[in-house]
Write a protein that binds this DNA or RNA. Structure first.
Lengths: 203, 203
DNA sequence: AATGCGATGGACTGATCAGTCCATTTTTCA
DNA sequence: TGAAAAATGGACTGATCAGTCCATCGCATT
């Protein structure tokens, strides 16, 4: 009788996904299923019971992480304190680049982009685009209240995110260890937010 | 007698590198040497006569492209016309993201980052860092001339490059087709340069 | 104790691919 | 024109790996 997945051990499932993240982000996409199984303390067959193929496993990792990423997007905003809010946003972004392995999923998505473009698409839309949309919404409110210059909020949001990231995102994707300190991150977050406010101050 | 590389057909060498770029950037890092040879109209052995291994071939591609990218950095600057110069710079960057395949090498570098960190390093340093340094030098001169606000030129350069790129670089790496038009690129380049000038205008 | 379900691990298949070898052909140049 | 250098292509090796199969095991529930 063929073995079809019925109800399945949740803890083992977590172990599989975590091991897959570790192995894939450190060894790259060509890491073997055998090693993932070993790291998870599970047999290879068990992985195939949960996920039909390596591609589906990668997809599962990506969608789980995307879920984690979008959850905190709904935190209440500090409307009216634009500079403080933008500073906090910048700090969060910089910390993500700073944390080793923080860009692991993103690198994985880039590596999958050739063969599984849908994964790259999901990661981009749920990560970068969703974040930008949230930022744009904030900027739109500030503009409407007259506290920021008339502008395209989407474009302004993209500018701000870009100012914050600079080359750090690319550096992280290319495996550069972060050269930042926590104090440096704080300083840069404040500086960038202030510059943005100057660039977009009402005339 | 062992076949060691002596003086070798230059045209064929170009064909090999070009074919390797095409195949590797479209199929990904796991593309076979056989296919590269076929695309180049060359035998696999010939590739191995030119480059000892696949890794060295990838390295050769990367360093060649890096050379192409850094060469035009030495063009004479439009000192004193900051906004125009920055607009031109922004346009060049945006066009690179816009051109399909323009980010192929970068994606290749990201994919190599796990197994051949030196390639990623070379691409980052010769590409992103060199570009930023050139931009920073320009900003430094403008600051010294009192046409821009006192600031850390390196950080300002990174901000500007980030503002220009926004999410486009990531989008390109993730295989998103460019949504820009030439007119849109022009408008964005002007807008971004103007915002930057406002952010960094002397107080 | 019996039953059933999922986990196990090891063996196995089939495929792909880097890199080598070599007998032969083409190009280059003296 | 003749010989050396380089290119060719096809066969071959060795390794890796995705995915399958299966006999067995452990642990529930009844």
């Amino acid at each position: 009788m063929p073995r079809l997945a019925g109800q399945i051990d949740v803890a083992k499932n977590e172990a599989i996904l975590n091991a897959a993240v570790e192995v894939l982000t450190s060894r790259g996409l060509q890491a073997s299923m055998h090693e993932i199984a070993r790291r998870a303390g599970v047999s290879k067959q068990t992985i195939y019971n949960h996920y039909g193929s390596k591609a589906e496993l990668v997809r599962a990792i990506a969608t789980r992480r995307v879920g984690e990423l979008t959850a905190p997007l709904d935190a209440p905003e500090a409307t009216g304190h634009a500079e403080a809010a933008l500073t906090a946003y910048a700090r969060g972004l910089l910390m993500a680049y700073h944390r080793p392995g923080g860009m692991g999923l993103l690198r994985l998505a880039v590596m999958s982009a050739c063969e599984q473009p849908d994964i790259a698409q999901v990661v981009y839309e749920a990560g970068a685009l969703a974040n930008r949309a949230r930022l744009a919404e904030f900027i739109r409110r500030e503009v409407a209240a007259g506290r920021l210059d008339e502008c395209d909020p989407e474009q302004a949001a993209e500018c701000f995110a870009g100012m914050v990231s600079g080359q750090r995102q690319l550096g992280a994707l290319l495996g550069r260890p972060s050269a930042d300190t926590e104090a440096g991150i704080d300083a840069r977050a404040r500086e960038v937010a202030a510059r943005f406010i100057r660039a977009y101050a009402p005339r």
